[in-house]
Design a protein around this nucleic acid. Structure first.
Length: 595
DNA sequence: AAACATCAAC
């Protein structure tokens, strides 16, 4: 084949031809893009040709995830200077989307230093997306000021990006400031600020912002509903969630797969497993998030065997593959059912079959799997063999198991580690003091108490939430502030008497679970969950199920008492505590007494 | 030729 003359006039039709080819096949596959690239080389086109290079970079970056960024960047470096701002933007976008924020930032710097190109309206939204993923609010503020100086601060896309950036760093007040100052607030802005509050433990604020948005006549979309429902799911507010469900129906969003997924999650997290399963069964379009949500939902509710059955179904489904979170659910299910051998098998299959590299979360599950089954020493050895530094959660898992299985030596080891990684966490002191108390080691209990005082550790006050009708009732320990308090306490006394007849003996040792509580003179201080249960006994129809959401872990005494209440009063009681669900029925609990 | 916002976890 004779060489092509190197005149741009002659090459022009060839550039056009290649660009045409890219436009026809561009989005289909990397293979096609490489073919066009090869074609251009065969026809004497140099990749330094700006027009061709620009298109190639664009189509490469636009490939489905993950785009071949190093290939795209290589072409970028060969394009003749000066490089068009569009090409910079495209590459920054690619890095932002693949989570390579460092490369996105350094490309931006390179662009500013080159002096040939200026950022345009698209540059900052892309760059801010990259910075958002770094969750570094200091850096965010720096870039924020650059955006303002650049003159693009009035752009609604830039404002929305900044709003999201602050929300993602957990800085809701800065996020709200950005939102508040926006002269024009579009749906994305509302959704971002609502989501910001929802994700940062302020579901009530999220809901009232929604009401405000509604009053301004702005219609919600799937994003709005997802944020609101997940806020409700997090605090276990079923009645509130049901209200959002009504908005969802009104807005015609019942067929949206994301909103359905999070509705399923809401029901599962409120202990309504049957409803969650029904919802799943009714879904026409199910994605892997739907399957994963159900599996995790079943697992945390103590229905591990069922979770594994669903996983097997998922595996036989075409076009779906379990992800790392699915496996967290499966390993969690195994550990809560004492299926140690199966847990190890799934762990192995995750690597071998699905090529998912285990993360610290998965190792954490394995530690729990061993420790929960009573193999506390093996769990410790497992931690020592892990290919990564154990985090505080892993040590806390071990500590929790040590207190249940009464291994105070290893508990001490775990405690020392936790203290280094995260001092001032009241839950650990409570766990430990609980364990010492159960061994009648009162001087050690005192020691822990003194340490808490010395370190200035404030215990998180326990509270329990219950819903009656559309109202949420909150109870604290020894709470007497409720209008029906007299009735509730009469019920508590009656409850204690009837439980005694069943052989209930209050577990004195666990009085020390609540260190502050000891200080109270009252000999009969009821934990919030007991008060909540008594309140539900007096305010709901006989035999109707009771749901309680507690912010801390249920103590052993309350656990035993509620088990008996479920039998004596013939009530199904679901308690969601800080780490799991307890389904009490006929005197036993789904957690099999390992809480 | 391109832009901002969603879900599942030890």
């Amino acid at each position: 084949m004779p060489p092509f003359p190197e005149t741009s006039v002659l090459l022009l039709p060839m550039v056009e031809k290649c660009v045409n080819l890219l436009q026809t096949y561009g989005f289909s596959s990397l293979k096609k893009l490489k073919q066009v690239h090869a074609f251009s080389i065969r026809h004497g086109l140099s990749i330094s040709n700006a027009e061709l290079g620009k298109h190639l970079v664009f189509y490469l970056v636009s490939l489905p995830s993950p785009p071949p960024m190093s290939y795209a960047h290589k072409i970028f470096t060969k394009i003749e200077k000066p490089i068009n701002v569009f090409v910079y933007n495209t590459l920054i976008r690619g890095y932002a989307e693949t989570g390579d924020s460092v490369s996105a930032l350094s490309l931006y710097r390179e662009m500013r230093v080159s002096g040939f190109v200026e950022p345009d309206t698209h540059t900052y939204p892309f760059l801010l997306k990259a910075v958002t993923k770094m969750a570094d609010s200091r850096l965010g503020e720096t870039i924020h000021s650059i955006v303002i100086r650049s003159g693009f601060g009035s752009l609604i896309f830039a404002q929305n990006s900044l709003l999201h950036l602050y929300a993602n760093c957990g800085d809701v007040s800065s996020a709200y400031k950005v939102f508040d100052k926006m002269p024009v607030k579009d749906l994305v802005a509302w959704n971002s600020v609502i989501n910001g509050f929802a994700e940062n433990g302020k579901p009530n604020e999220a809901l009232s912002l929604y009401t405000e948005m509604d009053s301004k006549g702005i219609k919600p979309d799937g994003f709005t509903i997802v944020s609101l429902l997940s806020a409700c799911a997090k605090i276990g507010a079923l009645a509130l969630g049901k209200r959002v469900h009504v908005y969802m129906i009104k807005a015609g969003l019942t067929r949206n797969v994301h909103t359905k997924n999070v509705l399923l999650d809401l029901y599962a997290r409120c202990g309504r497993v049957e409803e969650a399963k029904t919802l799943f069964g009714e879904m026409v379009e199910k994605n892997s998030v739907s399957w994963t949500s159900l599996i995790v939902g079943l697992a945390v509710n103590g229905f591990g065997k069922e979770a594994i059955e669903i996983f097997k179904e998922m595996e036989s489904e075409k076009g779906l593959s379990p992800c790392e979170i699915t496996f967290v659910g499966i390993l969690y299910a195994c550990s809560h059912c004492g299926m140690v051998k199966e847990g190890f098998e799934y762990f192995k299959r995750m690597r071998d079959e699905y090529e998912i590299e285990p993360r610290i979360e998965h190792f954490g599950c394995m530690v729990d799997l061993l420790a929960r089954a009573g193999q506390v020493k093996e769990a410790y050895e497992y931690i020592m063999r892990m290919p990564m530094q154990p985090n505080v959660v892993v040590w806390r898992t071990l500590l929790g198991a040590c207190t249940v299985h009464g291994d105070s030596d290893l508990a001490e080891v775990a405690r020392v580690q936790i203290l280094q990684l995260e001092p001032n966490h009241s839950g650990d002191y409570v766990l430990l003091s609980n364990m010492y108390a159960s061994e009648q080691r009162w001087s050690d209990v005192q020691k822990i108490r003194r340490q808490m005082l010395r370190d200035g550790v404030r215990k998180v006050p326990g509270h329990s939430l219950v819903e009656v009708g559309n109202r949420v009732h909150e109870f604290l320990i020894g709470d007497k502030s409720h209008p029906q308090s007299d009735e509730i306490y009469a019920k508590l006394r009656e409850m204690t008497e009837r439980l005694r007849l069943e052989g209930y003996v209050p577990r004195i040792s666990n009085v020390y679970v609540d260190v502050e509580e000891e200080e109270k003179e009252d000999a009969l201080v009821y934990h919030s969950e007991k008060i909540a249960v008594a309140f539900m006994l007096v305010s709901t129809p006989e035999r109707s199920p009771i749901r309680v959401v507690k912010n801390l872990r249920v103590c052993a005494d309350c656990h035993l008492a509620i088990k008996l209440v479920s039998k004596v009063y013939d009530r199904e009681i679901v308690v969601r505590d800080r780490s799991r669900f307890h389904h009490f029925k006929d005197g036993s609990c789904s957690c099999q007494d390992y809480w």
